[in-house]
Design a protein around this nucleic acid. Structure first.
Lengths: 261, 261
DNA sequence: CGCCGTCTTGACGAATCTCAAATAAAGTGG
DNA sequence: CCACTTTATTTGAGATTCGTCAAGACGGCG
């Protein structure tokens, strides 16, 4: 929809898709440093001590950006200059095929890092959009690179970050290639549940930040199919659904769905 | 099928899946160096001069391995110690979901590098199998790492390699999520054609090294569907099929298939 | 309170899978 | 090199899954 190419850092100020928005605020001065960040060492699962990791991050994070729901953090074609860590809130990434169709390709929770696919190509290849009001830590890549060069441990974390991204994409390709609709949705819910648990949130009750259409897009399904499946899972006593509020009632049952042929 | 975990380098000697095979020969001494390798700078699309790149590679390649069709280069769980560049032949990678289903996740031609997903996790997460008798260059990762540390340009190549892998996986997820069967197969053929052209082979006539089942697995389709589509493409004058020998007759037509809703 | 985006549900149709059988090709042992 | 065995491919018929189209309900926001 937008073709404008802008640098996302440090003074990113692109308006949202739907309406004019105030300039995104740099909230660095008003927020605590990485050392006190509640995310802990989730940002990069670390073999370093948590404290070491956090100090490193303090060195890396240049600014923080506040996004409002629907705001775009970066788009395809934007020059890659930084990685982005979700601090608060959540984002989706949307990719496009050459022929123009779009698909939700990623979903990022606090502590997860976006933009990795841009390393090495110097441009972003997808669009990142806030699913709710969010706060994003900006990690300028030149700093990341310098630190990686100086600190072998950190270099390894960077490799790990990229490997993880490869494995994540591959997992999602596997899901789309081998699973039926109900299995994909069950896998989606279980994955979400696990990631919430890892962040200290409830793993059995959470709010979906994506619409049925966005979930469907990520899973290669139509929104009606997603809706029907939620209803069916509900009937079968696997989950409880109230709009976007989900309760997992029978985790084992969901896991069995996955195993079933 | 096999659970044995072995180090793939330098003396990899796993028998094939079906029958005992002679120990894989290290053919380093009998083959020319990277400088003379016909692949040119394809191994890592490079911003360096081709000569520089080749010399670097000479420094990196420890041994070469000869695989016979069906031989396994590495498996999930194998310790990651090296990257593998296809020199001659071709390989597939096969990934497994937690519930045990398999899918072909990658297809590597001469000059392409396998094993990237193992960087950072220290284990391989998929299985690599030769689709035909092949020759593989082994790039021990400690050497890669050292060179990357010393040479900024090469470090960047390494990042690029990993980014490319991310984008490749994402592209394949997009295909599976948004395209219909005929579009997936058309995209598969066009991609193959482009990659053969980039290697100086005919882009209009080539031999498929995968079975219908393997192609289907990669595209999230059943072998019968792949077979039917080949027949239909043939009827429609898009391609000519003789078993695994494919001629592209109407590239435009195939591309139009992709664009079509 | 009414509008608009989102969600649910039904009926129908198309795409793809499953099962089955025949044919073709490739690999094996003599 | 041939005969035999095994594996791969093609093709058909019918079943299943999921998408499409359409209508109505729900819910949040101005």
């Amino acid at each position: 929809m937008h073709a404008t190419v802008v640098s996302a850092v440090p003074a990113y100020r692109e308006p949202s898709q739907k309406r004019a928005r105030p300039i995104l605020r740099d909230v660095s001065s008003t927020t605590p440093s990485c050392v006190d960040c509640g995310i802990g060492s989730l940002c990069m699962p670390s073999t370093m001590g948590a404290q070491d990791a956090k100090h490193m991050f303090d060195e890396l994070v240049s600014t923080r950006i506040r996004l409002r729901k629907g705001d775009v953090l970066f788009r395809p074609g934007d020059r890659f200059t930084a990685l982005f860590a979700v601090r608060v809130g959540s984002c989706k990434t949307v990719s496009m095929t050459d022929d123009g169709s779009e698909q939700v390709s990623g979903h990022y929770l606090p502590g997860e890092i976006m933009g990795v696919e841009g390393i090495g190509n110097d441009v972003h290849t997808c669009q990142s959009v806030a699913l709710e009001d969010s706060e994003i830590c900006v990690l300028p890549f030149d700093r990341v690179e310098k630190l990686a060069q100086r600190e072998g441990t950190f270099q390894h974390q960077l490799y790990r970050l990229m490997s993880t991204a490869i494995v994540r994409e591959r997992t999602s390709a596997m899901m789309l290639g081998t699973m039926r609709a109900e299995q994909r949705l069950a896998a989606f819910l279980l994955d979400l549940s696990n990631r919430y648990r890892a962040r200290g949130y409830s793993s059995t009750e959470f709010v979906l930040r994506m619409t049925r259409e966005e979930i469907g897009s990520q899973l290669g399904l139509k929104l009606e199919t997603v809706s029907r499946l939620f209803s069916r899972f509900h009937e079968e006593g696997l989950i409880e659904v109230q709009g976007r509020v989900i309760k997992l009632l029978d985790r084992i049952g969901l896991q069995q769905l996955l195993a079933a042929s």
